[in-house]
């Protein structure tokens, strides 16, 4: 009684082969987007740089070379061999600071995203699953958070909690969270009406099992995409907070803080602001491009054929 529609193509049997095939399929759709591949490579490079920072960096990020204050980059007039991208107003090597700064950026991205993702998923699941007044209360609260300009809200929170990188990250996570809540809620509401959820309910599954085992795994694709976008947002916001003096505190080589310290030298020494700015730009762009490709690969609605 075998179905005639069974494909003759060899089907993977072991779960390892299955995973390989799914990965292959993912890569096929992901790699169709060239920008995404470039973004991925830039991001991977960034990770490598961050991890190997102590080995790569030519100098310590904190060491102040009094004899080399505001040295321009090596290829311009007055550049010195030891300082590839020049030095800042107190004689620290900019390249080394940027390399160590990558550690900060990645840490901020991971921490903020994890925090807002878990919080958002939890709250969104509850709102989307129970609906009714619980949903109304939660969503209006999220609307209020969204009504503030996110940076302003983060500033207020930091002002209350006190300026430090940790508090800044918590504040940013809080402002990013409503996006996850909304996304999770929408996905949960859509999935909840599907027959497989009803079937699980008929099998006797309780609300917790339904929420976390049945529904949540099917809502991950949009969340992963949103997570990558938040990752870049978090880096950007943290840099902005740093620039305003409310995030990482000097002498930490955080990119936004570096910009802030260099503010007054913008006209005299272009390199002290250009390179941290470029680092932020490239990182955020790469992650956003990657997020685009992830959406192409994970969102079945966009899949062709």
């Amino acid at each position: 009684m075998a179905d005639i529609m069974v494909d003759k193509a060899p089907e993977p049997v072991s779960s390892a082969a299955l995973r390989r095939q799914m990965l292959k399929e993912f890569w096929f759709y992901f790699s169709e987007n060239r920008g995404a591949v470039i973004g991925l490579f830039v991001f991977l490079l960034l990770v490598v740089v961050a991890v190997l920072a102590p080995l790569i960096a030519p100098h310590s990020p904190f060491e102040q070379y009094r004899d080399a204050v505001l040295v321009p980059p090596i290829w311009t007039e007055g550049g010195r061999a030891g300082y590839l991208l020049g030095t800042d107003p107190v004689g620290r090597d900019i390249l080394s600071r940027l390399i160590y700064g990558a550690q900060y950026s990645l840490f901020i991205g991971v921490f903020v995203t994890t925090l807002s993702l878990t919080g958002g998923i939890l709250v969104g699941l509850i709102a989307g699953y129970y609906r009714g007044w619980v949903d109304t209360v939660i969503m209006r609260l999220m609307d209020i958070i969204l009504a503030f300009p996110s940076l302003l809200l983060a500033l207020v929170l930091v002002a209350i909690l006190g300026p430090s990188l940790t508090n800044g990250m918590i504040a940013i996570a809080l402002t990013l969270q409503p996006h996850f809540v909304r996304l999770t809620r929408a996905a949960v509401m859509a999935e909840k009406t599907r027959d497989y959820v009803t079937a699980a309910r008929l099998a006797g599954a309780g609300p917790l099992r339904l929420m976390f085992r049945t529904i949540l795994p099917n809502c991950t694709a949009p969340l992963i995409v949103q997570a990558t976008l938040s990752f870049s947002n978090a880096i950007l916001d943290a840099a902005a907070l740093g620039f305003l003096g409310m995030g990482a505190q000097p002498p930490a080589p955080e990119w936004g803080t570096m910009l802030a310290e260099a503010r007054e030298f913008i006209l005299r020494a272009w390199w002290v602001v250009t390179f941290p700015g470029l680092a932020i730009l490239i990182t955020v762009l790469a992650i956003n491009l990657m997020g685009d490709g992830l959406r192409d690969a994970l969102d079945p609605k966009l899949k062709r054929s």
């Binding site: 599907r194 027959d195 497989y196 009803t198 079937a199 699980a200 008929l202 006797g204 049945t214 795994p217 099917n218």
Partner: peptide, 19 residues
């Protein structure tokens, strides 16, 4: 509950895609 079970119309929606 165990005495009565149902089979749905749409075989594409009635199975959890991640299970």
């Amino acid at each position: 509950r165990q005495k009565v079970q149902i089979v749905f119309q749409n075989p594409y929606g009635s199975l959890n895609p991640r299970q």
